[in-house]
Write a protein that binds this DNA or RNA. Sequence first.
DNA 1: CTGCTAGCATA
DNA 2: GTATGCTAGCAGA
Length: 925
Amino acid sequence: MKTLLLIDGSSYLYRAFHAMPDLRSPEGLPTGAIYGVVNMLRRLEKDVQFDYSACIFDAKGRTFRDDLYPEYKANRPSMPDDLRLQIAPVHQLVEALGWPLLAVEGVEADDVIGTLATVAEQQGFRVIVSTGDKDIAQLVTPNVTLVNTMTNETLDEAGVVEKFGVPPTQIIDYLTLIGDKVDNVPGVEKCGPKTAVKWLEAYGSLDGVIEHAAEVKGVVGDKLREALPRLPLSRELVTIKCDVDLKKELPQGLDDLEHRARDAATLADAFRTHGFRTWLKEAEQWLADSGVAPASANGEAAQAELFGGGGDDPVSPVPVKATVERDYRCVLTAAQLDELLTGLASAPVVSFDTETTSLDPFAARLVGMSFAWQEGLAYYLPLAHHYAGVPEQLNFDATLAVLKPWLEDANRPKLGQNLKYDRHVLANHGIELAGIVDDTLLQSYVIESHLTHNMDDLAERHLGETTISYEEICGKGAKQIGFAEVDIDTATRYSAEDADITLRLDHAMKPQLAGRLMDVYRDIELPASVVLYAMERTGVLIDRQRLAAQSHELGLKLVELEQQAYELAGQPFNLNSPKQLQEILFGKLGIDTKGVKKTPSGGYSTDEGVLEKLALDHPLPKLILQNRSLAKLKSTYTDKLPLQINPDTGRVHTTYSQAVAVTGRLASTDPNLQNIPVRTAEGRRVREAFIAPPGHQIVSADYSQIELRIMAHLSGDKGLLAAFQSGADIHRATAAEVFGVALDAVSADQRRAAKAINFGLIYGMSQYGLAAQLEIDNAQAKQFIDRYFMRYPGVAEYMQRTRDAAREQGYVETVFGRRLYLPEIRSSNGARRAGAERAAINAPMQGTAADLIKLAMIKVHAWLTEQGLKSRLIMQVHDELVLEVPDAELELIKRELPRLMAGAATLAVPLLAEVGAGDSWEAAH
DNA sequence: CTGCTAGCATA
DNA sequence: GTATGCTAGCAGA
């Protein structure tokens, strides 16, 4: 069977343009898209076996769709000049590489592809369409498959079903319902992929949906009925035309699509002009082989060869040992500063980094700054180094004043590694950094959240470069010196390298942020970092006196407990030492160790669960438990929090780590405000010290059962969806189903068991885990689980699907496309593998919840800003947002905050957020 | 002084 | 059973 390979040139042109760094030819013309498309073609040539081929582009001018619908593509921004300039060179290279090129006026590239695929299939060909455009999925048949060369994804019929939830034959109907924002094709408002799939499953086709439109309930139903008159037009717009007349272009039919010999001379000329050095060498070799003397190669070094190494798989790039010449310059004189400023003023985007006196963003003072806008060239501007014999530096205040306009200009694009930190540092000097367009920390996190993201590791992984580490120049531990004491030459080498490497990392990682990963990066992580900065900067007001009083009280109780414990033990010992306690309990007191859990290192555990059991027979363990919980409260919270109050602001400023939790959650440090006690009455008193200033209230809103709702959404289980739709108490509803009783006949124990099952599901439960949690035997736990899955079969299927997907692709995804890799999912070690499976089950739920609340934070922050309100977000605790609200805005916030949170995204289940307000965080619940 | 363990706070 | 961060104690520098 012969194979026809069709390439959607237009789709790749756009994608390459946006995915590639801003490459330039020696003459300064843009070449990124050219490089990307040629790279892709070369890879296809190498990887795919085919007999005939064509590369298809959109032609200039109007198409029949514009005539059908004047507003078609009206939302598209006009083509950037830098892209337009690359079209002709791409066409030239495509032909020189030997690919038949088609661009037919009056239709789009898709239509030509559809027509060729149809004709070829009729003539018994196998057809492979290489595209990045999802609309083309409608062309898939048993003989027509898609391949996305940028992500290495292939789609056959089963793949289309897996990806979209509908077979290729329903893709047109699916796209019609959803509509297309970019092309301005109206669909049904509020109808996204999930709803479209649901309807098509229920009614079989778009016509079926239209027929049954009257039956669809709720707001979406109304929106559907509103959309009805528009749908036939939308269907026409999204339908790829498969009968384009190609007689003029292909008089011989498919025989005109034979791959031709490459034109080495044209290629060599073009590669030289564009500055593609590696390919130029290759082309010159071809010329030499064919006996034609190569023209002399000159021109400056091009950068292109450094990215992707000329054909790496973007998912697992092999770093090419870079051979970038380094030119690192130190700025010490007015003339050098002028040179720097001139560069900054004209650079399209600048990599920026600060050097400081401290890692604590609120204590840090500037020591110097580095800048890079061209690979290999970077500037270090020392401002506050001080050591014996330090050369004279530019004046600190005057130089900052000169740089301030550039730093604060939102139209001067900047990128960096964890710029949230640099923003704080500059803010400490009265400068509001603006124009942040990229952050390599967040790029790396979105690409591979399970790996490390420090710059030294990133440079090694993505660039094959070994960088100077901070420890190498500052030492470590007690002997570590401040950056200000580092001599300026060394500092220049270190800091300029940081800016340079960051710039190169951005270039290396951008192409890996394809498709939905780019959306997570652009639409979630980058905007979320702005909100987090603001929250950290605002801080939280803490009632110091109240905590001091609590500390005192706790201290008295602890002394008392201590004395009682010594008496029971018959000797004094350190209650906080698990080792000493173990000796007392199992040695001196001779408590039976049978059935006592061991610690990983072999000793007998004295953790909460163990002590609780022992407390049934002995008085001491109970005392220890009380002591532990009070000691924890005192040492971690009531003693420590007051010490973390910033003397300048009188508030506590946490740092949110945006790139540590593999699932996409945030983490809070210094101090951790995400583990302030809440479960016990005594612990909750700490929250009484989280207060609002006079004239303000604390407002808190938390998502109700967010992870279970996400499970309902992801699994699509009818029973679970219905339970959430009904608004019933979900644990009670689960109990009623599992135990087969009426809702109002559910006992307290049954509800407790159901709650444990629900939580267990989120954590990838096993019968053993559930048995331990509920203190029942394994057989009984298994019975509960079996009954649950019997009642909610969709959930059981979803769990299995997730495990399978994790094993097959090595990662799982959130609703928004965030990826979590599970390196141990194929481990031969059963325990490790089981652990990875549990993580695989938990990650889409925990991760989607994290995505949702980030989206909510972005919305809330934007809304507060747009409305000019004085309320401020001050904390995020995974499913809860806390704000400080002036009394005048209280009612507005209490009304709108839960609405914004619930509207963060539309899932198959309603989202619900519950709000409260009070003088303290405790009172807000 | 540094790095590790056990234990425990949160969602 | 998932995901985190912090503290005290302790052993080995």
